[in-house]
Amino acid sequence: MRRLLPTYAETVDLPAAYAYPEGRPWLRAQMVSSADGAAVLEGRSGGLSGRADKRVFALTRALADVILVGASTVRVEGYRPPEIRPEFQPLRAGRPSAPPLAIVSRSLDLDLDDPAYREAEPRTIVVTARRAPAARLAAVREVADVIVAGEDLVDVGYAVDALVERGHRRLLCEGGPRLLAEVAAVGRLDELCLTLSPLLIAGSAPRILNGVALQPAQRMELAQLLEEDGFLFARYVRAPA
């Protein structure tokens, strides 16, 4: 993998290139898009990926304290408990062997027999609203930790604060597009790591943020650009106010 920006280099120290900033909580999103802006291919983001993208995806997981993800993405993408590649395991020194999933669901329409709940170590966190179905909430508590954030709908900003209070200062959001749009809308998106796949999709696939338009639009600055096998790996950070 080579670095194109901010300075050119033929080789890249990936853990250093994706290191979290020190001194404050930081929420990073990791997403992939086709060259024409599609967030999925045949219903899944995995179809847009490649070897280098999978390596970056594995690295950002290894660096994170927690992985924030929507319940629909867990179902569609077939999530399992996170496992860290051996090459990145030293990055977990002093922390649990893998970051927990924090799964956002208002309805709690979850398959609680799924390995993402039954086999997760550390224990999966489910983020929901106070008016979630009581019976479902009781069942969820048997297999996962629970954060109640909001009344009728999940308050994503409150959820992020609650995760930080639990010690998860390096947050990674893996989407999907609806959840990521909500994270941006409440002003919590500090960084976007975007893989641009050299594919054209067309059709009606959603963008990586799929929700109400941001008012005003959020300005991002390009901090880094890497390339391998025609894939571009951009790191955008939120511009100062």
Rank of each mutant, 00 (worst) to 15 (best):
G167W: 05
R166K: 13
L192G: 08
T195I: 12
A213N: 02
L179D: 04
R178A: 15
G176L: 02
A185T: 08
D161V: 04
R170M: 00
D190F: 07
R170G: 00
L209C: 13
V160F: 01
L196T: 11
R169N: 03
Q224I: 09
V160D: 04
L189H: 08
R169E: 11
Q215M: 14
G176D: 01
L209S: 09
E165A: 14
L171P: 00
L222S: 01
G176H: 04
A223L: 06
A184R: 02
L200M: 11
D190H: 04
E165Y: 06
E221G: 07
L180K: 09
G203C: 12
E182Q: 14
D190V: 06
M220L: 14
C173D: 07
L196M: 10
L194N: 12
A213T: 03
A159V: 06
A205C: 14
G203A: 11
L194Y: 10
I201E: 12
Q215R: 14
A185E: 13
L200W: 08
C193Q: 14
P198D: 13
L209Y: 08
L199V: 15
A162V: 00
Q215T: 13
V164I: 15
P206W: 00
A181W: 01
G167M: 05
V212K: 14
R178W: 09
I208Q: 11
L192A: 15
L163F: 08
L209A: 10
L192R: 07
T195V: 14
Q218D: 06
E182W: 06
A202N: 13
